[in-house]
């Protein structure tokens, strides 16, 4: 029986490159000024999945992403990087989800995907930096978890061995399957694989994308259809989705302002520096 891997991947605004134009004059974030990218650590997770697939042979790699319609890009990118397929979980019901509501929805979608042996997620997403969704999905499914994986060292039919990168060290642990593993940014980067796949899947589309695209019907015939699931496709209780399934509420968002000080202006000339050092010694800041 084939070994089934699910990778959780999120589309995120590229907060690493937040420039001044990313903040609007009123102090709010201008999301449209930021590119939407594949969350970096999710690519590390995908890489581990693809490596396992090429090692085991009889394995499938499916990517699951929850987000707006344009997050279909994540599935497309995953496929031309070598994943077998993926699902876009999308819909109004999911809006306003915090990490718990997100994990509830993802866990429900994973249950629908059938037999899963291994779930890989990124350690954290760069938009929220919470690192919560992986462990919470594991908890919802009753899976054990191994966080901060740097390398999957070994996999046999009922266990996985992982090297973890901790703040102040490393750990090698073994756990039973099925399991969820979160992958660290220090793991191997996701290298591009097959040029042929790129060509084949560049035009993969969801049904809703197809309906809005102007391409002709022969094109429809040859493109891969990305399956799109809404709340109606997963088994769920409505109160656990979206806003009502989110125990955390944002009370307030503030722009960061630092209070400027009255500063003393000096230059690099000897007299200025000597004066400064004398002052610091005299007021016991140094010495």
């Amino acid at each position: 029986m084939s070994f089934n891997i699910v990778v959780l991947a999120k589309q995120v605004p590229d907060t690493r490159n937040v420039g001044k134009d990313a903040m609007k004059a009123d102090g709010t974030v201008n999301r449209s000024a930021l590119a939407a990218i594949y969350n970096p650590e999710d690519l590390n997770a995908l890489e581990q999945a693809l490596r396992l697939k090429s090692k085991i042979g009889d394995a499938t790699v499916q990517v699951l992403t929850m987000g707006p319609a344009r997050a279909a890009e994540i599935i497309r990118e995953s496929m031309y990087r070598g994943a077998d397929g993926g699902f876009l979980l999308s819909g109004r019901e999911f809006a306003g989800s915090d990490t718990l509501a997100t994990s509830y929805a993802l866990a429900a979608a994973i249950r629908k995907m059938g037999k899963v042996d291994l779930i890989l997620s990124g350690r954290q997403a760069i938009d929220g930096d919470t690192a919560q969704v992986g462990p919470q999905v594991a908890e919802k499914l009753g899976f054990p978890q191994i966080t901060y994986a740097e390398e999957i060292i070994d996999l046999d039919k009922d266990s996985i061995t992982v090297r973890r990168r901790l703040e102040r060290g490393v750990e090698i642990v073994r756990g039973p399957l099925p399991i969820l593993v979160t992958v660290n940014g220090s793991a191997a980067p996701c290298r591009p694989r097959h040029a042929k796949l790129t060509l084949k899947y560049k035009n993969a589309k969801t049904i809703s994308e197809q309906q809005t695209s102007s391409s002709d019907y022969t094109d429809t015939y040859h493109t891969y259809i990305i399956p799109e699931w809404g709340a109606g496709d997963i088994e769920h209780e409505p109160q656990w989705l979206g806003l009502s399934g989110s125990p955390t509420k944002v009370k307030q968002i503030e722009n960061v302002v630092f209070t400027a000080k009255e500063s003393k202006q000096l230059t690099a000339v000897d007299a200025d520096i000597e004066e400064l050092m004398k002052e610091l010694i005299a007021n016991h800041t140094i010495g």
């Binding site: 955390t248 944002v250 968002i253």
Partner: peptide, 13 residues
């Protein structure tokens, strides 16, 4: 901090 540190959010449960 949120959004790369550009804003500060107050969260409540």
């Amino acid at each position: 901090p949120a959004f790369g540190g550009n804003i500060v959010a107050t969260i409540v449960n």
